[in-house]
């Protein structure tokens, strides 16, 4: 237990985080590239066409992973915000800062691919269905967090405001999750569930699972990379960063 705590404590030090992330990041990039490549080829060319939707169902392989990530990133951002508020760990705030645009992009992908998919499947690209609306609200929450962070002249005020909005906004996540059960109007219920077997044959859901994992690895790798840049930016005057840039040691 003591070991875990000292690990977490060290992780809070920007210098140490910068060093450990350099070793972890390549593995996540490689895993992301491999998983997304395999999942794409499998999903686009080898998975059987849906008996009702034909080949338009192949949109699922980008739509569902992006929607998963859109929600997971928001929760991660809220947790990072909480860690920053409670323990004043700066790295947590830097991670939260780079997660927001990533999450916004994922939310946009899920909304866009969903709208495009809706045209041949539902005959409409948009409806004020509960799932669609709550995902649109998620996009606005992301944009709000990004705007709020930049709206203060002091960085610390911006960080705290963004953290609070992320923590409050996380209430939207269970609403998104249960929207398809509470108000079942247009969007179909969950594709994946932990408790039951998928309603699709293996050749259809295996590539989906691979894509979801690939997107998660992509998110981790991108977050690590951009957090590292954020560390350099904010710690630019620290001795170790100056040494790294060729300054006097």
């Amino acid at each position: 237990m003591g070991k875990i705590w000292s690990f977490i404590h060290k992780l809070g030090s920007p210098k140490w985080f910068y060093a450990i992330s350099a070793r972890l990041m390549p593995w996540f990039w490689v895993a992301a590239a491999a998983l997304i490549l395999v999942g794409s080829v499998w999903g686009l060319a080898f998975a059987p066409a849906d008996y009702q939707q034909g080949n338009s169902f192949r949109i699922i392989y980008v739509h569902v992973p992006a929607a998963f990530l859109a929600q997971s990133i928001f929760v991660s951002m809220a947790v990072a915000g909480l860690v920053f508020m409670v323990w004043k760990i700066k790295v947590a705030d830097m991670a939260a800062a780079v997660m927001a645009p990533l999450g916004a992009v994922m939310t946009f992908i899920s909304l866009f691919s969903g709208a495009v998919w809706g045209v041949p499947t539902w005959g409409t690209w948009w409806m004020w269905d509960a799932r669609l609306t709550s995902m649109l609200i998620l996009l606005f929450l992301y944009l709000g967090v990004i705007a709020l962070r930049g709206a203060f002249s002091s960085r610390d005020s911006g960080s705290r405001a963004a953290s609070v909005l992320a923590m409050v906004g996380v209430i939207n996540i269970p609403i998104i999750k249960y929207s398809v059960d509470w108000w079942y109007t247009l969007h179909q219920p969950a594709t994946f569930s932990v408790t039951s077997r998928p309603a699709m044959p293996l050749e259809m859901w295996a590539p989906l699972l691979i894509m979801v994992l690939g997107f998660y690895c992509f998110f981790i790798a991108a977050t690590l990379m951009r957090t590292r840049s954020e560390i350099l930016r904010r710690e630019a005057n620290k001795r170790w960063v100056r040494e790294l840039a060729g300054g006097p040691s």
């Binding site: 997304i36 794409s40 686009l44 066409a49 034909g54 080949n55 338009s56 192949r58 949109i59 980008v62 739509h63 992006a66 990533l102 992009v105 946009f108 992908i109 866009f112 691919s113 495009v116 998919w117 045209v119 041949p120 992509f218 991108a222």
Partner: peptide, 22 residues
């Protein structure tokens, strides 16, 4: 894509472009 080319490739294209952009 069995007649669904615009939908499938638009979704995949936008996703690929955005991930590459990131």
């Amino acid at each position: 894509m069995g007649g669904h080319a615009p939908y499938v490739w638009a979704s995949w294209g936008v996703t690929g472009a955005l991930l590459a952009g990131i």
